[in-house]
């Protein structure tokens, strides 16, 4: 682990130049990279790049019905944001379950996404919110960006479609319609400081006993956090009665592929997804 160079670029331009030049270990909060590298689980590249000083890569702004969140925004900053609390409350709920105050102060949204843990706390609400990620690179002397849905960005545990020369620069979330209902559930015995055994996000609009624009996402039951399209379809536009709830739960059961690990067995994860989705839908009905 011989690091030849440490750098802390001030601009995105500078950071992308460094990335283009060769193997780099970028970090923002460092909360994942530091312990992983110290334990030898991750080999650091010869260049260690601190992203935190890049100007303009933080902040939360709303424009034309889209909330743009800079990748360097910390969990605490998300929780302090009025627009997140009021309009993207499901994301706020997930942040509240994220680790501890110390880690919320250091960990960034971009870092949590790029870490691509199947159990990543923010991924489930971001999927529910149809978030898109913005990736930047500088292939020919000019900054180029591409945007893609988060669901397409996540490939597997720790794996994303980010190319080595790219940086995740921002997350964009289309503002949900007024009255959007969002609920996040994380299974655990503690309020936070816990890796979730499973997590569930539910978002929808209430319409006269029916749910519309239904979005359901699960964490820790597949190689990535996933959307549950079949369960969503079972619910979309239907009167939310017991039969529909049963059908949605059954559909969800077919969409998950939980593994057994030290935190839970696959069997238990499956049971919890079904039980808790059911409970969340019942809660949504009485909401």
């Amino acid at each position: 682990m011989t690091i030849e160079r440490y750098c802390a670029p001030r601009t995105l331009d500078e950071a992308l130049e460094i990335l283009r030049a060769g193997p780099v270990s970028p970090f923002a909060g460092g909360t994942d990279l530091m312990p992983q590298s110290q334990a030898g689980r991750v080999r650091l590249a010869p260049v260690l790049m601190n992203l935190r000083r890049i100007e303009g890569m933080g902040g939360i702004a709303e424009n034309d019905g889209v909330v743009r969140i800079g990748a360097l925004t910390t969990m605490t900053q998300l929780m302090d944001s009025a627009v997140v609390r009021e309009r993207l409350n499901i994301l706020w709920q997930a942040c509240d379950h994220f680790a501890s105050d110390q880690l919320r102060n250091a960990g960034t949204l971009g870092g949590n996404i790029c870490n691509a843990s199947p159990a990543g706390d923010t991924l489930v609400p971001l999927l529910v919110l149809d978030a898109r990620v913005e990736l930047a690179q500088k292939p020919n002397g000019r900054i180029e960006t591409r945007k893609l849905p988060l669901a397409e960005f996540l490939l597997g545990p720790g794996r994303t479609t980010r190319a080595p020369q790219e940086l995740l620069s921002a997350i964009e979330i289309p503002l949900p319609a007024e009255g959007f209902y969002g609920a996040f559930f994380k299974l655990g015995t503690r309020p936070a400081l816990d890796i979730s055994a499973i997590s569930i996000g539910l978002g929808a609009l209430h319409d006269d006993g029916c749910l519309r624009s239904v979005r359901i996402a699960f964490g820790a039951v597949a190689p990535t956090a996933i959307r549950a399209a079949r369960a969503e379809a079972e619910l979309e536009g239907r009167l939310l009665d017991q039969d529909v709830i049963d059908a949605a739960v059954q559909a969800a059961d077919t969409e998950i592929h939980p593994i057994s690990d030290l935190r839970a067995s696959g069997w238990y994860r499956r049971e919890m997804v079904c039980n808790m989705l059911r409970r969340m839908l019942e809660d949504a009905r009485s909401h």
Partner: peptide, 28 residues
């Protein structure tokens, strides 16, 4: 050394973090 116990809590720019997870160079 993994940000799980809080024994190394310090303040950086007015907020608390686990010092074990922060690169020293980032104190600059």
């Amino acid at each position: 050394g993994e940000g799980e116990c809080g024994a190394c809590t310090i303040l950086v720019d007015g907020v608390t973090i686990n010092a074990c997870l922060m690169f020293a160079a980032d104190c600059d």
